[in-house]
């Protein structure tokens, strides 16, 4: 039901001066009292990518697994094939390393971001240096 305009105005003004706005947004060293949108509250919080964990970037079905635990792989080695989007997609290693875990089986349906493999890098130093570039997510 719509309120007649004269009441609507009162309601609007009340909402405006509402002290119930208890959220703050920090910008340039000042905290502004303001409402937050659900989209802002639910925003994706950044995490630096862990190269040891191989995740699926698309949903599909595991067609074939080409490696097993203990295998040494080079960067670019095909680890498995995912049947998705009418294609056989090759999932490759990001870095040289040793397979420590295989989390999926052939025929398994996987979603986006499913963890497929764990690889320990042969050269660990590279990982340490890349971690230093981690950005702060606080605003």
């Amino acid at each position: 039901m719509k309120l007649p305009s004269r009441y609507k105005h009162k309601r609007e003004l009340q909402a405006d001066n509402d002290d119930s706005i208890t959220n703050f947004l920090a910008l340039e060293g000042y905290a502004y009292r303001t409402k937050l949108t659900p989209k802002f509250v639910n925003r994706h919080i950044y995490e630096p990518e862990n190269l040891n964990i191989i995740r699926s970037k698309i949903p599909g079905v595991i067609k074939k697994i080409a490696v097993s635990v203990g295998n040494e792989v080079k960067r670019g080695t095909v680890l498995c094939i995912v049947d998705a989007m009418k294609m056989h997609n090759e999932i490759c290693a990001f870095q040289d390393g040793i397979i420590t875990d295989v989390y999926v089986k052939p025929g398994q349906t996987i979603t986006k971001e499913t963890v497929l493999f764990n690889i320990i890098a042969v050269n660990d130093e590279q990982n340490i240096s890349s971690d230093n570039n981690q950005a702060s997510v606080d605003i």
Binding site: D16, L25, L27, Y32, T34, K35, L36, T37, F40
Partner: peptide
Amino acid sequence: PLVLAGVLDID
């Protein structure tokens, strides 16, 4: 200013 202090963002 009532929402997100009125900032410009992507949306």
